[in-house]
């Protein structure tokens, strides 16, 4: 194209550019001292505005205080958190990149349905304060009374009610387990599929679908527009007043939890840097238990409970195991 432009010129240009850039660069290497000595990145595998994003941003000021370093939020949404989880796993396991995500059920779903390049054991949960559950709800002015009514109608004619639900979700697994428990044919029910919890909830509240099964915590702002029918949990933590799955399908009723959200790190980080892990763990625990953080997050309808690594890891692994059993439900409808 132009023969004046030789390789040597190129090198010269490159070195001049490099020199200029180094002078201009503000990133001066500092001596390594105690962890953390630089800002910590928080990978959120969802877009801005969702529960995890709000949880991370709302917790950030308190965690920053406990850690003494700022937190950088990195939103990597898409593909049901697969892209974000993969990106997180690719970051160095040195404790300078942590994640705030709905690890359950998304990590198991990524693995079971999307061929994810990681396993559940690659993730270590520090604290999963938010444990969501499936709530079956109908519009406030609906003629559906309670769970027994829904089951009776479906037993008589499985297609009589339209059911709003997200495909490949914990909610779908719960619905199918409920149908099985009451002898209702799976393929005969009328599913209406939604891409997100929000649209499915709105459809229930507006009476567009007869009932919807969606994560219960997201229903809280819509409390006045819906009638709670059935809570898929052993306890009614949010005081819905609907039936519990254990009332309807027996004390040993099988069900899965919904989104289990909170803070996680690489499992390899825990092994490689036990000292750093201890610092991070303490910081998250201190912040989560501080009255200021509890007040601030509660006002935003975000969970702050301290459940700790042991309970949190067990919860995630249980979800993964149940999901694996019902892998056949996770394909398209």
């Amino acid at each position: 194209m132009n023969n004046n432009f030789t390789r040597r010129d190129m090198l010269r240009i490159a070195s001049v550019g490099a020199a200029a850039a180094t002078v201009a660069s503000p990133a001066i290497l500092r001596a390594q001292s105690g962890y953390p000595d630089r800002p910590i990145n928080v990978v959120i595998p969802f877009d801005t505005g969702g529960y995890n994003d709000r949880l991370a941003r709302a917790s950030a000021p308190f965690l920053q205080e406990a850690l003494g370093q700022p937190l950088n939020m990195i939103n990597r949404g898409g593909a049901g958190a697969l892209l974000g989880h993969t990106f997180f796993m690719q970051q160095p396991d040195d404790g300078y990149t942590i994640s705030c995500s709905s690890f359950g059920p998304y990590v198991p779903l990524n693995i079971l349905t999307q061929d994810a390049p990681f396993t559940v054991d690659d993730f270590h949960m520090i604290n999963l304060p938010s444990q969501d559950y499936t709530l079956m709800a109908t519009a406030a002015d609906s003629d559906i009374q309670d769970a027994a009514d829904v089951i009776a109608r479906l037993q008589e004619n499985p297609g009589s009610l339209s059911i709003g639900i997200q495909p490949a979700s914990a909610d779908l697994v719960n619905l199918m387990l409920l149908l099985d428990a009451h002898g209702i044919e799976r393929d005969a029910v009328r599913l209406v599929t939604y891409d997100g919890g929000g649209p499915a909830r709105n459809a229930a509240a507006g009476g567009v679908v007869d009932i919807a099964l969606v994560g219960g915590q997201g229903f809280l702002p819509l409390r006045e527009q819906i009638r709670p029918v059935l809570v898929f949990d052993e306890v009614d933590n949010d005081d819905w007043g609907g039936d519990l799955i254990t009332d309807v399908s027996g004390a040993d009723a099988e069900f899965v939890y919904g989104s289990q959200r909170g803070w996680g790190v690489h499992s390899s980080f825990v092994e490689k840097h036990p000292d750093r892990y201890e610092i991070l763990l303490n910081a998250i625990e201190t912040a989560s238990k501080s009255p200021e953080m509890i007040e601030s997050l509660t006002n935003q309808q975000l969970a702050t409970d301290w459940r700790g690594p042991e309970v949190s890891n067990r919860a995630l692994r249980n979800t993964a195991a149940v999901m694996e059993q019902h892998i056949d439900l996770l394909a398209g409808t």
């Binding site: 593909a79 697969l82 892209l83 495909p167 490949a168 599929t193 939604y194 398209g332 409808t333």
Partner: peptide
């Protein structure tokens, strides 16, 4: 919306 994945190029993104 019904959970069918049409990804002819098999790219995760």
């Amino acid at each position: 919306t019904a959970g069918h994945l049409r990804n002819p190029l098999e790219l995760p993104w």
